[in-house]
Computed example of a mutant assay.
Amino acid sequence: MRLLHTMLRVGDLQNSIDFYTNLMGMKLLKKSENKEYQYTLAFIGYGEESDTTVLELTYNWGEKHYNMGDAFGHIAIGVDDIYAICEFIEQQGGDVYRKPGPVKGGKSVIAFVRDPDGYAIELIERK
C-alpha cells in the first residue's frame, strides 16, 4: 500500500495552482472538469502520482470559501534551504506565519506558511 494523494478544497483553483507551482515548486500533473457534478480537479506534485504522493485541488463550482474546521492540521514538505525558500515565498507575497527556526524542544528547523485558502504547510529543512 502507498499514500496516493491528499485532497484540498479550494475557492480559486488557478490561484491555488499558481501558489503551489510558482511558490512551492510543484508541477501541474493533470486537470479535469466534471460538468455534470460541477467540479474541477487539479493534481499537483513534485513527481508523477505513480511514484510520489501528490495534492488533489478540488474546486466545486461557485464555492469560494470553506469552513476549515479544527481537525485538519497541516501538510509537510521537506526543503533543502528553509531560509531561502521562506524568503522567496515572502518576496512573492506569500504568508510565512512561523519564521524558520528550531522546533520547540527539538533540533529540526521548521517554518509554517499558508496557501491562498488558509491551509497550513509545514516546511521542514532536510539535512
Rank of each mutant, 00 (worst) to 15 (best):
G11L: 02
V113I: 15
L8C: 08
L23H: 04
K30G: 11
T58C: 06
K127I: 11
M7N: 10
Q92H: 14
L8N: 11
K35G: 05
Y39S: 05
G78C: 11
G25L: 04
G94V: 13
K64A: 11
Q92W: 03
G118E: 08
T52L: 09
L8P: 04
S50V: 03
D80A: 12
Y119F: 15
G45A: 13
S16F: 02
E48S: 12
F43Q: 02
K27T: 13
T40S: 03
R114Q: 09
D95E: 10
W61S: 01
G106Y: 00
D18S: 13
V96I: 14
K31D: 05
R126W: 13
G73R: 02
A111F: 12
G94A: 12
K127P: 10
N15A: 14
A84V: 09
H5K: 04
Y59L: 07
D70T: 03
L8G: 05
M24I: 14
E125C: 07
D12C: 13
G93I: 08
L41N: 09
Q14A: 11
L123F: 01
G101M: 09
K30H: 13
P100N: 10
V79M: 10
Y83H: 08
T40D: 00
D115Y: 00
E87A: 12
M1Y: 13
L23F: 08
Y39H: 12
H74I: 02
G25R: 09
W61E: 05
A84C: 09
W61K: 13
T21V: 10
G45Q: 07
G69H: 02
K27L: 07
S16G: 13
R98I: 12
A76G: 15
I121G: 02
V96C: 06
K99M: 13
Y46D: 00
Q38G: 09
N34F: 10
A42N: 01
E90K: 08
Y66L: 11
E48N: 14
F72H: 09
I77N: 01
G73K: 00
G78W: 06
R98D: 08
L123Q: 00
L29N: 14
N34M: 09
E33T: 04
V96M: 06
G78Q: 15
N15E: 12
G25V: 09
A71V: 01
K64T: 08
E49D: 02
M1Q: 06
Q92C: 13
E36Y: 05
S108N: 14
E48A: 05
K104M: 12
F43K: 02
P116H: 01
M1H: 09
E125V: 12
Q38L: 09
K35Q: 14
D12R: 05
D117I: 08
A76P: 06
D81K: 05
V103Q: 14
G45F: 11
S32K: 04
E36F: 04
N22D: 13
P100H: 12
F72V: 05
P100T: 08
M7F: 11
D115T: 02
I124R: 05
F43I: 06
